[in-house]
Simulated assay, not measured.
Amino acid sequence: MLTVCLLPITTVNAQEEEEKEASPAETKPAEAETPMVNPEDVKLQESNGIRKLMPNMPVWIDTKRKMVIMDGEVCLRKGSLEMFACLRGTKEHESIVAVPVDAYVVHAALLGIGAKQGEPVSFDPEYTPPSGDVIDVLVQWTDDKKKLQSVRAQQWVREAQGKKEMAYNWVFPGSYFWKDIPLEEIQKAKKEGIDPDTLPGKQVYAAEGGELICVSNFRSSMLDLPVPSTDANNNLWFEANTEKIPPEGTKVRIFLIPNKGKTAKLEAAQKAKAAENLKRAPMKEENKEAPES
Rank of each mutant, 00 (worst) to 15 (best):
P200S: 10
E165G: 09
P129F: 06
L225R: 04
W60L: 12
K271M: 07
N56I: 11
W141S: 10
G162A: 12
V215P: 01
M166W: 07
N48S: 09
K244P: 03
Q117L: 06
L76M: 14
P196S: 02
A22R: 07
V12H: 09
A160I: 02
E184Y: 08
Q187L: 15
A206Y: 03
P55I: 02
A30Y: 03
E267P: 00
S220A: 14
E33R: 15
K28D: 09
T63N: 11
L266V: 00
A167V: 04
V204M: 15
K251I: 14
Y127P: 14
S150G: 01
E289P: 04
V4E: 05
L212W: 02
E73P: 03
E285N: 06
I186L: 07
R51D: 09
V134W: 12
T11M: 04
I254V: 15
W156T: 05
P35V: 13
K179N: 00
E46G: 01
V59L: 11
T11K: 06
T250A: 09
S47V: 12
I50R: 07
I245H: 03
K288T: 10
D71W: 03
T198H: 00
V4D: 04
V68T: 08
N287P: 00
V68C: 06
L87K: 08
R77G: 05
E185T: 00
R219P: 08
N287C: 05
F218K: 00
S47G: 01
Q270R: 15
I96R: 02
E33V: 14
M57V: 01
A160Y: 01
I50F: 07
P58S: 06
G210I: 00
P58Y: 00
E208D: 07
P100M: 08
V97L: 14
K91E: 12
I245P: 08
Y176S: 09
P129I: 07
S220Y: 02
W178Y: 14
K265L: 15
A153W: 01
E159H: 11
Q270S: 11
L138E: 12
T198G: 03
Q203N: 13
M283N: 03
V204G: 04
E208A: 05
K147P: 06
E276S: 10
L138W: 10
N233M: 06
V204Y: 12
K179G: 01
D180Q: 13
L148Y: 02
M222P: 09
N13A: 13
K64T: 15
E46V: 14
K43C: 11
K273V: 09
I135L: 13
T34Y: 01
T263P: 09
T142C: 13
C214N: 15
V215K: 01
A290F: 15
Y127S: 09
F255P: 14
I96W: 00
D62N: 14
V137Y: 07
F172L: 10
V106N: 12
T250Q: 10
Q154D: 13
P258W: 04
G209R: 08
G162M: 10
L7E: 06
R65P: 01
S80C: 00
D231P: 07
G112Y: 02
